[in-house]
């Protein structure tokens, strides 16, 4: 494998990891602050992508599409929190799983009802389309570079929000002791709605950004949701830093595993068999990673709670 291919694959892994981070950040915030397992997070990703595709198709502007994705997913998140999730905080995790699974079904069929069963079209904006030449002779799609940049920007913004603002202090306090901050006069209901809508908006943003290079269709969120759960388990539940590190680890492991493993088996198996065995193992690589991290640190890399 030559160096250019390797460098390109590392960029691919970074880009994949950064998009996973946008999903995982919301999931881990919601789990950490509210103690809620939200299976419907993938539906918010889908709602973001559909809002972006619909608005971009209607106005012709990708930027307006992104704004619509943020607004639409945040609104859907706030609505879900007010109507359904609010009743689940003091229930056990099984009830939450059941209720949010129902939300997946409702969101999927609702989306199909509004937009139909056929995938929607969302294209990369003109200014960001096509490849660019990076130093070292690496040809790489500009849009994917922009995704890495946008994701890092959002990550920086989130760190500032959590570490430097009043609402960030409340969120961190809520993670530690929710009765106490309620007793100190923080409107906990409003805080929860805000955190849920924030997580939803991040998922919607990820859906819209990724929707432009993938297909915008019903059910697009669930595969990403599973990976996002792997990320927050690796990173430690409730930790934004853990989500970032976990997402990058998962992104790089998945991408590089797909390249390296079939090549490795090619050394002693015939090519057709090597690709089959190698790709089967490559799709397991992130779960092996998760298992190893959990053996080493049962609460995840940056987790504090068991």
């Amino acid at each position: 494998m030559d160096l250019i291919l390797l460098a390109e694959q590392i960029l691919n892994g970074l880009q994949f990891g950064i998009m996973l981070f946008l999903m995982a950040a919301g999931l881990t915030l919601i789990f950490g602050v509210m103690g809620l397992i939200n299976l419907a997070h993938g539906s918010l990703y889908m709602i973001g992508a559909f809002c972006a595709a619909a608005v971009a198709g209607w106005t012709g502007s990708f930027t307006l599409g992104l704004i619509a994705a943020l607004a639409g997913a945040a609104a859907a998140g706030a609505l879900i929190e007010l109507v359904v999730i609010r009743r689940l905080y003091d229930k056990d995790h099984l009830d939450q799983v059941l209720a949010t699974f129902a939300l997946i079904l409702i969101a999927s069929e609702g989306t199909r009802w509004v937009f139909g069963s056929f995938p929607l079209f969302l294209d990369i904006p003109e200014a960001l389309s096509g490849p660019v030449m990076l130093p070292g002779g690496i040809q790489y799609p500009l849009y994917r570079l922009a995704l890495i940049g946008a994701g890092l920007g959002v990550a920086a913004g989130l760190f500032l929000l959590i570490a430097r603002t009043r609402i960030g202090i409340q969120i961190r306090a809520g993670e530690n002791d929710r009765e106490m901050i309620a007793a100190l006069g923080v409107d906990i209901d409003r805080l929860y709605t805000f955190v849920f809508a924030l997580g939803a908006a991040l998922a919607g943003l990820a859906g819209a950004l990724v929707g432009a290079i993938q297909s915008v269709q019903v059910g697009m969120g669930e595969p990403v949701l599973i990976l996002a759960f792997v990320v927050i388990v690796i990173g430690g539940i409730g930790s934004i830093k853990g989500a970032l590190v976990g997402a990058l680890l998962v992104g790089l492991t998945d991408t590089l595993g797909k390249i390296a493993l079939p090549g490795l088996f090619g050394l002693f198996l015939d090519p057709a068999q090597a690709t089959q065995v190698g790709s089967a193992l490559a799709s397991m690589a992130i779960y092996v990673l998760m298992a190893m991290v959990l053996i080493w640190r049962p609460t995840g890399l940056y987790g504090v709670r068991a």
Binding site: P119, I124, G130, P141, Y143, Q214, S215
Partner: peptide
């Protein structure tokens, strides 16, 4: 299905 949509869009954008 959706797999082909993703592949073709990314292929076209890859140069």
């Amino acid at each position: 299905g959706g797999m082909g949509i993703s592949f073709l869009k990314q292929y076209a954008d890859s140069g």
